[in-house]
Amino acid sequence: MSQMIHRRTVTVRTEHGLHLSPCSRVAQTAMKFRSRVVLVRGSVRADAKSVLDLMTLAAGPGAELELEVDGDDAPQAVDAILHLFEHDLVSAP
């Protein structure tokens, strides 16, 4: 039985893109869940629980990323990540 993968699109809205501190907030959030959380930009896939991986997305302001989540707490994880991108990472400090 294959588990459903939850997919969403998120937009990077921080002034400088996914720099070090936004990446750490994404990773901190993703790590609260058991689900596998992946962000995809073009051909690059990043484990959202790894700051270093997230940085290799080199996502600038306005970049659109595909969010892929699978696991038993996937719905909650999707909500948390979406909330982060839509509200907390709008104008980064």
């Binding site: 750490s24 790894s50 270093l52």
Partner: peptide
């Protein structure tokens, strides 16, 4: 806290599970 954030990030990098 703005400056402390640099170290928070360092901490996350060095504890990065993948690494």
């Amino acid at each position: 806290s703005q400056y402390a954030a640099i170290f928070t990030a360092h901490l996350m990098m060095v504890q990065d599970r993948k690494v």
